[in-house]
Nucleic acid binder design. Sequence first.
DNA 1: AGTGAAAGTCAACTGTA
DNA 2: TACAGTTGACTTTCACT
Lengths: 152, 152
Amino acid sequence: MTFDAIDKKLLALLQADSKQTNKQLSLKLNLSVTAVYERIKKLENNGVISKYVALVKKDKVEKDFVAFCHIKLIQHSQAYVVKFEKEVANLEEVLECYHISGDYDYLLKVIVEDMEAFREFMVNKLTSINHIGSTHSMFVINEVKHTTAITV
Amino acid sequence: MTFDAIDKKLLALLQADSKQTNKQLSLKLNLSVTAVYERIKKLENNGVISKYVALVKKDKVEKDFVAFCHIKLIQHSQAYVVKFEKEVANLEEVLECYHISGDYDYLLKVIVEDMEAFREFMVNKLTSINHIGSTHSMFVINEVKHTTAITV
DNA sequence: AGTGAAAGTCAACTGTA
DNA sequence: TACAGTTGACTTTCACT
């Protein structure tokens, strides 16, 4: 689907705060409540908006340690790759996993309680997955920016 | 604050779908509607839930090209660092920016339309920020996992 | 901390232009 | 595609356990 200026602004508003009422949105967009309602439904039905979620503050739930892990596989046969991706996706500590270009095969974003928990995660969970050749971890010293909002 | 088993389950449910009504949640948690309401308010007031947002599907808005950029600064005086972090945070293409340990200083997650848009971003926006020493980009071939939900 | 019921507000669906 | 009005469902508050 295509987006006019109002759609784009609406998406920005909903990505910033999805708990706004249609009336609040209608005032910001200079539209009627029904028009806002119909535009939102259209965005939902077309799969542009995939879901609505609550965002949790890491430091409030003692999961303040973030690391990025590069991973190289030993070999890259279809079966190995599929199995690795499935097992990694099942790890709750892994929030993101990307197959990337470059020296390593994968980049993982891992979130745990502290360095000790990270060590445990590496030893007991990640490297217990077979076919991993080598890993290289980078620790987050400071989160400069983190948003889920895509500018349309 | 501390979380009992019900809080943890409630956080998981809200991180999966924040549009559920308190009635639906009350059934899943075997609680009254009011009890659910009060637990949610407590999580919000304590800052555990920072906000509610709509998640947008990248491929539906032609922002399907994701890259990770390593960045090294020329020098690391306080003034340079602050200025760099501020300017990077203002770039809409940069969804995430972390100060990290290792060979490079920063890791950025960048989302744009395509390779050409990425080239433009690098030339016109990113490297036009002063003090950048070197960069190293990795392109996402496939997104294996991506979740915003933290397991409490 | 929990509950049930009352009061106010909203989403969702009509009709109509 | 936009609007206004109606209805049932929801959030929020309150008195009480």
